[in-house]
Each structure stands twice: as structure tokens, then as C-alpha cells.
């Protein structure tokens, strides 16, 4: 287990060295600039839009980091030939894969936590700035703990994207890995349509393939609860557990598959 943690710590330190935290500054600037600009443009919808924008930016930046660092986790070691010295140490290949995965997930979760703090700080500022009679028109409070549920499910989505990027990087080039990861991410958002192909006029055979793909690929739609939390609608614990559990199983499958492929690779 300690070997896994050592590898994870290495990935975390690398990401700091690669200036990944710079995106946090970008995130904070986007939110603050938006909060001042939007108040003039949105006919009283600034708090809703800041909430939406913050969650979208956190998700998008997280996905970009997960893809572009995830695809290099294994490939970089192979390219630099540091994989030889790593594998000569008392560490198994499965520990190596798991360590790499945990390291990037740790980076992403830390990122997301800082973004959440900046997000709440901007919302607290808006709350403080807004007169009480205007607040009466808000569907949900500015500083609403429910928003953390959206952050939690974004973290789950990022765990899946990281697992995908890592999986593809164990057997293909970085470019192909990025393309495939993004493709699965896109398909994940079309899952419902895959299941309902018949209603779009597809033939029974195509509809059956669509249904097969629906079950084979992870469905990312349940992880998107932004609209619900922003409008003050309830997101049940059951929904959170089911959505996270389903994605958790896909992550486990991808990590096992990554290990299997990586163990078969010949680095001699």
C-alpha cells in the first residue's frame, strides 16, 4: 500500500511542478469578472448565473486537467524511459497504475476543493451586496450547502475521466488517448439518446446496438445536478449513492483493465 501512496505523492508533486494550480487563479478571475459583468446584463439573474458558471467552469477545467494530465501518466514514464528504473524497484505494475490514478484524483479533488472555496467566497460577496427585498426573489440562498452535492458529483465524473485517460494511455499514443477519452465523455452525455434510438426512427437492429452501447458506456447525465441545486430542488441521497456507485464500478473496471493491459506490456 505504501508503494501506491509513494507513486500517488509523486504524481501530486509533479502536477504542482507543472503549474496545474494556475487554473485556480483563472477560475477565480472568471468568477469575479463574471459576477460584476453579469449583474448588468441578466435582468436580476446574476446569482443563478454565477452558480451555473462556477459549476460549469469547475467541471470543464477538471475534465481538461484529467484528460491532459491523465493521458501522460504512463506515456511520460515510457517516453522518458524512467519506467525501467521504476519497475526495477519493489513495486508491482498494479500498484504503479493505482498510485498514478490516486495521485491525479488527489490533485483534482484538491483543485475542486479550492475552487469550491473561491466559489462560495464570490457567492457570499453577492449575498452581502444584495438587499433583502431582492433576495426574496431567489429560488435558493446564495450560500447554499446543497451546491456541495454538485461539486461532489463533479468529483465523481472527474474520477471516471481520469480512469478513462489512464486506461487508454496504457496501450495507445497520447493523442489517441485524449481523443478516445473525450469521445467516451461525449458519448456519456448522449447515453439517454442511445437508449431511445427507436424513437428517432432507427431500425430495430440499430436500436438494439444503441441499447447495448448505452449499457456498455457510463451514463454521465445523472452526475449533472447543477440545474436542480441551483433551482433549490432536492437531490436525494439515493440519487447521489446510485449515480456515484454506478460510476465507481466503471472506474474499478477501467483500473482492472488498465492493470491487465499494463502487466502484459513488455518494457525490456
Amino acid at each position: 500500500m505504501s508503494a501506491v501512496l509513494i507513486v500517488a505523492r509523486g504524481v501530486f508533486k509533479d502536477s504542482i511542478r507543472d503549474r496545474v494550480p494556475y487554473n485556480l487563479l483563472f477560475f477565480a478571475v472568471i468568477l469575479m469578472a463574471a459576477s460584476f459583468l453579469l449583474a448588468q446584463l441578466t435582468a436580476g439573474q446574476d446569482v443563478k448565473i454565477i452558480k451555473d458558471l462556477g459549476l460549469a467552469a469547475a467541471s470543464l477545467m477538471g475534465v481538461l486537467i484529467a484528460v491532459f494530465i491523465g493521458i501522460g501518466l504512463v506515456a511520460k514514464e515510457v517516453e522518458r524511459r524512467s519506467i525501467y528504473s521504476l519497475l526495477s524497484k519493489p513495486i508491482t505494475r498494479s500498484q504503479f497504475i493505482l498510485g498514478k490514478y490516486l495521485g491525479l484524483v488527489l490533485t483534482l479533488v484538491a483543485n475542486l476543493a479550492v475552487m469550491a472555496i473561491a466559489y462560495y467566497a464570490v457567492l457570499a460577496y453577492l449575498d452581502w451586496q444584495t438587499p433583502a427585498n431582492i433576495k426574496l426573489g431567489w429560488e435558493a440562498a446564495a450560500i447554499d450547502p446543497m451546491l456541495l452535492k454538485a461539486f461532489a458529483l463533479i468529483a465523481v465524473e472527474l474520477m471516471l475521466v481520469t480512469a478513462l485517460a489512464l486506461f487508454f494511455s496504457t496501450f495507445s499514443s497520447t493523442f489517441l488517448s485524449a481523443a478516445l477519452t473525450i469521445a467516451i465523455y461525449v458519448i456519456g452525455h448522449f447515453s439517454e439518446d442511445l437508449r431511445m434510438l427507436e424513437s428517432f426512427g432507427a431500425s430495430p437492429a440499430v436500436a438494439m446496438i444503441g441499447r447495448g452501447l448505452y449499457y456498455a458506456f457510463p451514463n454521465l447525465a445523472p452526475l449533472n445536478v447543477t440545474a436542480a441545486v441551483v433551482h433549490g430542488q432536492a437531490v436525494t441521497a439515493q440519487h447521489m449513492l446510485l449515480a456515484s456507485g454506478s460510476i465507481g464500478l466503471y472506474v474499478a473496471v477501467l483500473l482492472v483493465a488498465s492493470t491487465l493491459i499494463f502487466e502484459r506490456r513488455d518494457f525490456k
Binding site: 451555473d52 459549476l55 454521465l220 447543477t226 441551483v230
Partner: peptide, 10 residues
């Protein structure tokens, strides 16, 4: 909009 519905609606 790939799941970014809320921000696209805004």
C-alpha cells in the same frame, strides 16, 4: 452542450 445545459441556458 454536453451537459452544460444550465450555463448554456444562461
Amino acid at each position: 452542450v454536453l451537459g452544460f445545459n444550465s450555463v448554456a441556458a444562461d
